[in-house]
Nucleic acid binder design. Structure first.
Length: 846
RNA sequence: GUCGGAAUGGCGGAAUGGUAGACGCCGCGGACUUAAAAUCCGCUGAGUGAAGACUCGUACGGGUUCAAGUCCCGUUUCCGACACCA
């Protein structure tokens, strides 16, 4: 008996089982104080790098979704330690981001202070769940020691020509005086206050992720990732094979180049469309159409991407007045300007084939343009008028020399034909765009770039007696400007480029970032000349792109991680997190990893070998948890009532890790009861006598199953198996040590606090965290006798109990002799008997 | 629309093509208690039956097989992602 259960002051907890609050606090202290889970590093042992997607430490604290993935990886890691692995299992904070900055603007509290407080809350909450993280490796993306290396990676990108600036539209909200992120803009209005938002071009940093499109696509094949995530990334990258074709523009205006994936429908092209931003729009527009076209282009420009791509919108466009010459038939076809063609994809111009493209079909219908069939399933035209575009492959018709060719052959033939005549060529295009990398925000990593300050005539602004604020004034007055054509990298030795301390996070009132107001930080002299720092900061994705590398060697000041640590731990063997990061985070991180691979920093092409998405936990009403629905479950409250072990167990017992599943607090009573029953089991005398055969078999089967299930992350069925074993053990008069010890050990990854306590009670002084996983005896995992179902004409009619290795002939004899079976075979002719020894007997009668 | 996933008792879920519903929740009955809670024992897919037992049953319609929740074809519904990318 322990002190808890005999202490009269503790009768409350005794009645409900053991004092889990005391036990859990005790072991959490013990693990932390002894750094029990510091990653061991012995090159002779197998390594495992198990990673959770690190959280953004929001002010709201942990929700029940966070511990779902964390518990799964914790169980897995504890299992791996017991099976002889060196395990790297770290945790950290993705702490740059919008909410802290918005809070700062509202309250004046510096984001660093908010962040520190939130991190402390998160750490405490996570530790209260007893996870076996190596806390010596905690990282925080807002720590200058961390973002020094985020900036360093940016410089590598810059040096390789993968970071560049371009004029890109941003969402500028004049009423709020700030630039908004896409997700802060809803239907062209600001999320807060519903003020109008205008799109205006601004100089932005871009990352050339498109240069890696081919590799980002190809390398997906070798990854152990959910099919859905791979499919999403493939779609996002959007490789498309087709051809570019030149159409001559009437009036000697050169050629209009289009991209199509269906060059086989070339003969069906009855008009052309260029995007409103196409460079030739101006030149192609005839004078009588100019007013109309200009108005259309202006209207299109003011529309947001979202509006323009709204599917339900009626297609619009204007005829520019000019005709193109069909390269095959020589027929003149009209050139239209319409915003259903996107400027940023392909060549920004298409040949419209209304008979075989649903968008062109809709447009042709609306503007009464001709529709010409050139493909059909059989090569015979479908009845006209067509009700919809026929977009499948088929056989060509009315296509000159190509008539009668199946689509695939046609595509090959026309490609050669186009190349031969210099009219076009096969071409691959990608949907993936370069990554807009700058944000007009304070709370992010400063981009380590600066520009010369020059006078009106372009000569360097000399130091003189100027102060930074004077320089700012000169620029404001137009007497000086930044030479954005000459971006210069901050020397690596000067990293980190720290965020300036400031209390002024308020929007600037113009599209410039808040850092533009930090004159003393922004303007500096070097060899007598003035320079100005970049004032855009990096997006939140930056820090999360490479954090898995910093964990390897978090305090290294000379490199982002030592070559030894990189060689030892990479790649990440298991990465667990939410599916909401299917595309962006996982694609960006893969991109950076490949760049670092090309830099020779890392040695695998891919960072994350195996990926698992935990399913969302819904509210008790089956709806997504949200404050407005009032169905949010607070994990702290659950821990208070049920304890960490019961909470962990419940989250895993709810169902498969990947599944979306509703919360049910009632279910926690089940896991709480289970743990109490385990505790009560040890009230039985622990004896050194051997266990009976049935118990031994049940134990060994359970050890095998829990091991298998844990490796496969089928944690729900592993728990069910341990519950079933307990149901057997409680019936025993006493508890053989040879059963008690393995049982505690297999339970340990799942309910580590209780297990440590029981392990100690069994007389062990060291933590069980590094105990070997109990071995199971395969001979004890099968029964000597088995119950064999007997089917007659496919229906279960009887069961016979036989020795497990009963031969087929004997099994058949016993089965047919069984009275229950005989009842169904009497008066019938046995036509066939299928015997699967050890499994079942199936009798066919007539 | 496209892509990915799912559909099994009152609920969460389990089932290498081979005894559907393990395990748990809820519920019901019983023991203990002055009583309740907690705990322990038992029952718990639907239907027929006194019982032995039988019939039906894994979204729907077909098919393959001695045997289908599981494999194949088609349909419906739900969830998630993408969505004018030519």
């Amino acid at each position: 008996m322990t002190a808890e259960s005999t202490n009269p002051d503790n009768h409350e907890t005794h009645r409900h089982g053991y004092d889990f609050a005391a036990v859990e606090a005790k072991w959490q202290r013990h693990w932390l104080a002894g750094a029990i889970f510091a990653a061991r590093n012995d090159a002779a042992r197998r390594k495992a790098y198990v990673l959770d997607m690190f959280p953004y430490p929001s002010g709201a604290g942990l929700h029940v979704g966070h511990p779902e993935g964390y518990t799964a990886t914790d169980i897995y890691c504890r299992y791996l330690r017991m099976t002889g692995h060196d395990v790297l299992h770290p945790m950290g904070w993705d702490a740059f981001g919008l909410p802290a900055e918005q809070y700062a603007i509202k309250t004046g509290t510096h984001p660093a202070i908010t962040t520190r407080a939130n991190v402390a809350t998160f750490r405490k909450q996570i530790q209260a769940l007893g996870f076996s993280y190596d806390w010596n490796r905690e990282v925080d993306t807002t720590d200058p020691g961390y973002y020094k290396w985020t900036q360093w990676i940016f410089l590598q990108l810059f040096k390789r020509g993968l970071a560049y600036t371009a004029e890109v539209p941003v969402n500028w909200c004049p009423a709020l005086g700030t630039v908004l992120a896409n997700e802060e803009v809803i239907d062209g209005k600001s999320e807060r206050g519903a003020h109008p938002v205008v799109r205006m071009p601004m100089r932005q940093w871009m990352l050339r992720i498109t240069a890696y499109a081919e590799r980002l696509l190809g390398d997906l094949d070798g990854l152990q990732w959910p099919e859905g995530i791979k499919a999403q990334q493939r779609t996002w990258i959007g490789r498309s094979e087709g051809a570019e074709v030149d159409f001559a523009i009437e009036g000697g205006l050169g050629v209009l180049r289009v991209y199509t994936t269906r060059p086989d429908t070339l003969f069906g092209s009855t008009y052309m469309v260029v995007a409103p931003e196409h460079p030739l729009v101006e030149a192609m527009t005839t004078d009588d159409r100019r007013g109309e076209v200009q108005a259309y282009v202006a209207a299109a420009r003011s529309r947001s991407d979202r509006e323009r791509t709204d599917d339900s919108r009626q297609k619009t466009g204007v005829f520019c007045g000019r005709m193109a010459i069909h390269p095959c038939t020589g027929a003149p076809i009209p050139i239209w300007v319409a915003d259903y063609v996107l400027g940023g994809y392909g060549t920004g111009a298409i040949m419209a084939v209304p008979a075989h493209d649903s968008r062109d079909f809709a447009f042709a219908r609306a503007y009464e343009l001709p529709i010409r069939q050139v493909v059909s399933p059989t090569g015979q035209p479908l009845p006209e008028p067509l009700q919809a575009a026929y977009t499948d492959d088929g056989v060509a018709l009315d296509s000159g020399p190509f008539t009668g060719l199946p689509t695939a052959q046609f595509k090959r033939a026309i490609a050669a034909w186009l190349v031969e005549r210099g009219l076009g060529e096969p071409k691959v295009h990608w949907k993936l765009r370069d990554w807009v990398f700058s944000r007009q925000r304070y709370w992010g990593e400063p981009i380590p770039i600066f520009y010369p300050v020059v006078e009106r005539d372009g000569t360097a602004l000399q130091h003189g007696q100027l102060q930074p604020s004077d320089v700012a004034q000169l620029i404001a007055q137009g007497a000086a400007r930044l030479d954005y054509e000459r971006p210069m990298p901050v020397p690596e030795t000067e990293l980190p480029l720290r965020l300036p301390q400031t209390d002024d996070f308020a929007p600037t009132g113009n599209p410039e970032p808040p850092l533009a107001k930090c004159h003393a930080w922004r303007y500096f002299t070097q060899q007598g000349a003035w320079y100005a720092r970049e004032t855009n900061t990096m997006p939140q994705w930056a820090g999360s792109c490479w954090y898995y590398l910093r964990y390897l060697d978090p305090n290294n000041e000379a490199a982002l991680a030592s070559p030894e640590a990189i060689a030892r731990w990479l790649p990440v063997d298991l990465y667990v997190g939410g599916a909401e990061h299917a595309v962006l985070h996982l694609l960006y991180a893969r991109f950076w990893h490949k760049v670092l691979f090309d830099c020779g920093v890392v040695h695998q092409a891919e960072p994350f070998q195996r990926l698992v998405n935990q399913g969302m936990i819904l509210g008790e009403d089956g709806e997504k948890m949200s404050k407005s629905r009032g169905n949010v479950i607070n994990p702290d409250a659950m821990l208070q009532v049920f304890g960490a072990d019961a909470f962990r167990l419940y989250e895993m017992f709810m169902g498969p890790l990947e599944a979306v599943k509703p919360w049910a607090t009632a279910g926690l009573h089940g896991t709480r009861r289970f743990l109490n029953r385990v505790w009560a089991l040890f009230d039985k005398p622990v004896v050194d006598a051997p266990a009976d055969d049935a118990t031994l078999r049940a134990l060994h089967k359970t050890i095998a199953k829990v091991g298998d299930d844990t490796r496969e992350l089928r944690l729900n069925t592993a728990i069910a198996a341990m519950m079933a074993l307990l149901n057997d053990l409680v019936r025993l008069p006493n508890l053989p040590r040879s059963v008690a010890e393995p049982f505690v050990l297999i339970l340990a990854p799942y309910a580590p606090h209780l297990s440590e306590e029981l392990w100690e009670r069994l007389g062990h002084c060291a933590s069980l965290a590094w105990q070997p996983w109990p071995a199971h005896d395969p001979a004890l995992c099968v029964d000597d006798t088995v119950e064999i179902p007997v089917q007659v004409n496919g229906k279960l009619r009887g069961k016979v109990v036989v020795a497990k290795d009963t031969a087929a002939a004997e099994l058949e004899r016993v089965a047919l002799a069984d009275p229950q079976v005989a009842k169904w075979t009497a008066d019938k002719v046995v036509a066939k008997v299928i015997v699967v020894p050890g499994r079942m007997v199936s009798v066919v009668v007539k």
